[in-house]
Amino acid sequence: MSGPLALSSASDERSTTRSDRTSPTPAASSARRRVLKEALAAWTLAGPAVFFLFVLFFVPMIGVFIIALTDWQFGARSLSFVGLANFREVFADHGFRTSLFNTVIYVLIVVPGTLVLGLLTALLIESGNSCRSFYRAIHFLPFMATLTAMAIAWEALLHPTIGLVNQTLAAIGLPTANWLRDDKTALSVLAVIDIWQNLGYAMVLFLAGLKSIPQDLYDAADVDGADLWLDRLCTVTLPMLGPVSMFVVIVVALRAFESFDTVKVLTQGGPGHASEMLLYTLYRESFEYLHTGYGAAVAVVFLAIVVTLTLIQARLMDRKVHYQ
């Protein structure tokens, strides 16, 4: 029992005496030197990461704020502070307001859709034993697939004349549409593609949540009489999934906010501004129109939304820990 303890204290002594021999200082100062040595080693090891964190994250972030608050343009040699002028311009712009509104609507479609479908799939997969990983793989596949390429496949699927969707609708006598070129459908179609891509992700998170529900709780529910499907669901499954669901909501919402690929490939925000969303606005203003101050202001707004969502997520994660 005392073996390892004795060994480590002996080694401590040895290292102290060794440092004493090289420079005869009191024990306190040698202890301080060891602390310094460890700190030095730590900062050396963390050094590259710290350097790049500053260069690639914190300095650019300050940069975004500076650009947003000044009149700086690409190539300009000087800049002057213009206060909130860029923000005023952004919020006065009908295009931006539409973009923000679209983004909110989009998230409000994608989140419930992804959540409900992901949860249902997870519950169905978990309710039986056979073919679990097969079904999981199929439903998860879209999440893996390169969205740019799959967007092209979706475009073919949604093609007004030769697309499978319209052909099917026509075959069963339903009205067809030019899905991506119609301002009434474009945004919803993008949302459906987003749900298609992320439902497997939500499913996987829910499956992990379902796995972590102790079997004992179901047994207790059985003995207590809550043995019908709905009672089990309400007594054990759904309440125990509560924290996971909140987590999924935030994660999916964040992903939906950051949607870009489908907009860029399929609609370019069109028709008109019907499917324009924040990240696409940010991209277009900053890099296509070289509208630097405007772009930076959009970036700040975008950042504010994402940070708010993430902070909510962090709070919920805390609550999840206290739940048990």
């Binding site: 102790p214 004992d216 709780l217 047994d219 207790a220 059985d222 003995v223 207590d224 009489g225 043995d227 007594t235 054990v236 309440p239 125990m240 509560g242 739940y323 048990q324």
Partner: peptide, 21 residues
């Protein structure tokens, strides 16, 4: 018979209390 029809009660090793209630 299903557990609830057997008129038995059980105390589990983990207690199996419903944490949200």
């Amino acid at each position: 018979l299903r557990p609830k029809r057997r008129d038995v009660a059980m105390v589990f090793q983990s207690y199996a209390l419903y944490p949200h209630m």
